[in-house]
Computed example of a mutant assay.
Amino acid sequence: MAGVQTAVQLREQGWPGAVTVLGAETHPPYDLPPLSKAVLSGKAEGSAFDVDFAALAIDLRLGHGVTALRPDAREVDTAAGPVPYDRLVLATGAVPVALPGSADVPGVHLLRTLDDAERLRPVLRERRRVVIVGAGWIGAEFATAAREAGCPVTVVEAAGEPLAGALPPEASRPMRAWYAECGAELRTGVAVARLRPDPAAKVELADGTVLPADAVVVGIGARPATGWLAGSGVALAPDGSVLADERLRTSVPDVYAVGDCASFPSARYGRRLLVHHWDNALHGPRVVAAGLVGDAGKAVQAGPEVYDPVPYFWSEQFGRFVQYVGWHGEGDEVLWRGDPTSASWSVCWLRDGALGALLAVGRPRDVAQGRKLIEQRAPLDRALAADPAVPLKKAALTTA
């Protein structure tokens, strides 16, 4: 998404020169969210972007995985040979984290690429026994698809609650019941000790429990795909992300970074953000293209100059539409809108009385209104905000 959108935005904003897109995969560029939904279930064969690269004069080179960046030569090395550049945009995304030793065990899967989804289709079609390692977004979405297909499902999570890396326990705890409702077993607070090749005893847990499985799906997070930048001079954060500035420029001249591989400073939240979600890969390219077009001497820029979005992501799981907007931190005040055991509810996080983040289950209006309130840094009337019958925008306090 980030690479393709950058190329499209360059053309839409008036970039006059050549545009080349390098892709490691041989498939035409595709969207990721459908992989854990329609593509996985077999309802769609793929999710290729509807982009006419030829009409936009974009040189799309597939099977060109990058292996090194050499700024002095203004080249990137690829599997098909070096490629020169005048300006370079890093959009290599993220790679899933694998369990140690899992490469040597048959029947262990990741879910990040189209090939991954296609390899997992027979698991659902044949209703095989599945153990999912990790109760994050991918784990929950795969559990949903597997249960809909009729697979026996056990989900193992080392943390005490699902979505531990994204949400505090008070917000994710109500989601435990969703697994039971759909017939999936959720085991929390226990890690995987090792994997075995025997389907009858596939997954050994740290507490000694052994779980049978015909397939194991690992969803324990992702890390920026930046290992190929070693020795390039591009500065990286401790989490491995490219240290981009507010215009998504890197520490190397004429090199930008966007999407899952890059973190950026947020003046809104007073910290650097690394956002591994679709919305970030969609909107960041507008800033990159604006910077590149401006650097090329164009008088008018069609995009914003500084990137400081209100982060947003969503997930469809267990018959529910879950959305999150903003960013919350320790010490933020928690305010509930509705009963978390009901079909629809929201959680607000306030900082100094203003809305900083919101999680909504089945309440899309709260998300739409909450996003605007976050952008405005609007303080809220707590009593009104806590009433789910009151539109969230009505809880905003006006100042003289």
Rank of each mutant, 00 (worst) to 15 (best):
P100H: 00
A103P: 13
P106G: 04
G107S: 07
G107R: 09
H109V: 04
L111V: 03
R112F: 02
T113F: 07
L114G: 07
A117C: 10
A117T: 03
E118G: 01
R119A: 14
L120C: 13
L120Y: 02
V123G: 03
L124V: 13
R125A: 14
E126Y: 09
R129W: 15
V130L: 15
V131I: 13
V131L: 11
I132K: 15
V133L: 11
A135K: 14
G136Q: 13
G136H: 10
W137M: 12
W137D: 01
I138V: 15
I138Q: 08
G139Q: 10
G139E: 12
E141I: 04
E141D: 07
F142R: 02
A143Q: 10
T144L: 05
A146G: 11
G150M: 05
G150L: 04
G150P: 08
P152H: 00
V153K: 13
V153C: 05
V153Y: 14
T154H: 01
V155K: 13
V155C: 04
V156E: 00
E157A: 08
E157V: 07
E157C: 05
A159W: 02
E161Q: 14
A164V: 13
G165I: 03
A166C: 07
L167R: 03
P168F: 01
P168R: 00
P169I: 10
P169F: 00
A171E: 07
P174C: 00
P174M: 01
W178M: 14
Y179L: 11
A180K: 12
G183Q: 06
A184R: 10
R187C: 13
G189C: 09
V192Q: 09
R194A: 14
R194D: 02
R194Y: 08
P197F: 12
A200S: 11
A200R: 02
A201M: 11
K202E: 01
K202I: 09
V203C: 05
L205H: 09
D207N: 09
T209D: 11
T209A: 14
V210R: 14
V210P: 00
D214F: 07
D214S: 03
D214K: 02
V217M: 06
G219R: 10
R223V: 08
